[in-house]
Design a protein around this nucleic acid. Structure first.
Lengths: 334, 334
DNA sequence: ACCTTAAACTAAACCGGTTTAGTTTAAGGT
DNA sequence: ACCTTAAACTAAACCGGTTTAGTTTAAGGT
């Protein structure tokens, strides 16, 4: 099929070794004469030789590939995050093989294993809630990986997440400082560590302000079919608590859907205090006064890749893991 | 490091061949006794053996990986499209290695070559305007690939695109049927085949309706920093043609930015006839009467992968290429 | 004429799978 | 006792690189 080192060696009447040395750029230090080097390089140029990196990886044990598993690459949040991985990984000569777990542990576990058989050098995972078992065995085998977006508090792994508790607390405090008293919590699946911390931040802020927690203001939107589910939830909420004066959204999806709901129902948005974790470019126009804690995807991506690269290189595996929490409190804008 | 077929063979006192046969599931047909098979399978289960797929790929010449190059994986359009590639590819046991070209030919060419050295079985490319040369050499080497989103009319390649001319024509016709006479064309870089076809569709529709083409209504928004550029363009347009009554957008980004501009400037959107290629979930709420030709990303992704898989399998390379044009004319909603 | 040495180059093993072209073993027939 | 045959198993080459532990060659010294 395509040309190999063996072919080059045969055609030029030198050994595979010589060709390999020259092409690896160590020809001179291995004492290959300038003439031979030139001959090989010219031949390679002429024939358009492309090495088979599979063979190299097999020998070296390094594939220069990072496996990435996210809930869905079609989700703009993960798409943007993965983009940052790509940019940062590329700086060190790594490329990405990307899989979507569809928020299904079984698929996620399969993908982890499959990527390992494909010999990725490390993994970046935005995990589901239930893959602790598999992560444990990665740890035991000392396989390099970093969790992003979510982490497992019980496992000693690398992770890069947002300081959910603190951010939530500060955001809700801003609403309270605006004089809001009936602040709804629009949230989602509480089993997710990240979400439960955000919920806790809300409660803590109310607590500190001595505002009693009102069960009616606590709205958990189901994740399946949530665009429809949220309409029901909001109808219900506005019916039960007509004098509601603020909304805290634990995800930007929830904020977006709620804003669209307001527009559709012709409800004046500006009467409410609004706060939300993570930005959507549209908020600037549609809800310009909303407090938005912007998740710095560039920092998140950069850190995740660098922590991983570090662990991959020092594969000695001291067992020291890095838990990197990104502070959003200072990046709140509106 | 981790366990190999050789280790298993040594431990169980059988040959590598036997282990390989059993693990490939062809043990029985190769006459390996049930006892030996059981022994091997149990050992593998116990030790958690994971094969090295690099070695397999090196021998078989098949990596079960498709290389994907898009302008940016962080762009929601490509993210969603890539998601469809992933879903479809997975059905046939393929995974994706994904690269963002950043709309830079040099990077794109580098990535094409790099992915080939990594032995991807085929490529799906949403190309820049200038990589014809590299595509030509892929064709010459009979390497399987499919273009998506954009194609090269001069090259005989596989491609999956939208019927831009027809769709544009139909969309602008809808506006004309609404009685609109001063329809602006909000478009972008005309060097892109896709965009120039969409522009042509606009002109053809005007022509057929005997509406003279007005240079003032033709707005080309620069792609770099377009969110700012479009504001300038729209200010200018509304100043020059105050009685404008319709907008045709050749991309959904342009439509979105324009709608946000209207909202910010407190301009009544409903006075205009609007039409746009490709959807944004927000249009339903913010511009419910806009004609939107939805690009079926699922169909696009499915076709691209299947055309590629087909070419990869029949690597005989008859040279027959498939140009698949997706008709949007029938999927126009508002 | 022979030895030493540096320069230039290479044979062969290796990475971990798969596959071809066998060989070994033991039962069954006469 | 010997042959045939099917069942069960395997040695070794292969994929295309890299690397170790050399070997070959020719010049330079005496």
């Amino acid at each position: 099929m395509s040309i190999t080192i063996k072919d080059i060696a045969k055609d030029l009447k030198v050994s595979k070794t010589t060709v390999s040395f020259v092409l690896s750029g160590i020809g001179s230090s291995k004492g290959i004469s300038a003439g031979t080097q030139k001959k090989i390089l010219e031949y390679v140029e002429e024939k358009g030789y492309q090495p088979n990196l599979l063979a190299k990886s097999l020998y070296t044990g390094i594939s220069n590939t990072i496996g990435v598993i996210v809930p869905s690459i079609g989700d703009i949040f993960y798409a943007e995050l993965v983009k940052e991985f790509e940019v940062e990984a590329k700086k060190s000569g790594y490329i990405l093989t990307i899989c979507s777990s569809e928020r299904d542990v079984l698929q996620e576990v399969k993908m982890i294993r499959m990527l390992r058989t494909k010999q990725v050098d490390g993994l970046i995972i935005a995990p589901t809630e239930y893959c602790g078992q598999e992560l444990k065995s990665l740890l035991k085998e000392n396989f390099p990986f970093v969790l992003v977006d979510r982490f497992y508090p019980d496992l000693k792994t690398n992770y890069v997440v947002v300081d959910d508790l603190e951010t939530s607390f500060v955001l809700v405090n801003k609403l309270i400082a605006q004089g809001k008293k009936k602040i709804a919590l629009i949230t989602t699946d509480t089993r997710i560590t990240t979400i439960s911390l955000r919920n806790k931040g809300y409660k803590d802020a109310l607590n500190e302000a001595k505002i009693p927690f009102d069960e009616n203001l606590f709205c958990e939107v189901k994740r399946t079919n949530y665009a429809n589910n949220i309409i029901e939830v909001l109808d219900n909420l506005l019916g039960k608590v007509p004098d509601i004066d603020g909304f805290y959204f634990t995800t930007h999806y929830l904020a977006l859907e709620t804003i669209l709901y307001f527009i559709k129902k012709n409800i004046n948005i500006s009467q409410y205090g609004l706060a939300c974790i993570h930005r959507n470019p549209i908020f600037e126009t549609l809800a310009p006064s909303m407090y938005v804690a912007r998740i710095p995807l560039d920092e998140m991506g950069r850190e995740a890749v660098n922590i991983l690269l570090n662990e991959m290189i020092n594969k000695t595996g001291t067992g020291d893991k890095i838990g990197y929490e990104i502070s959003l409190s200072n990046s709140i804008g509106s």
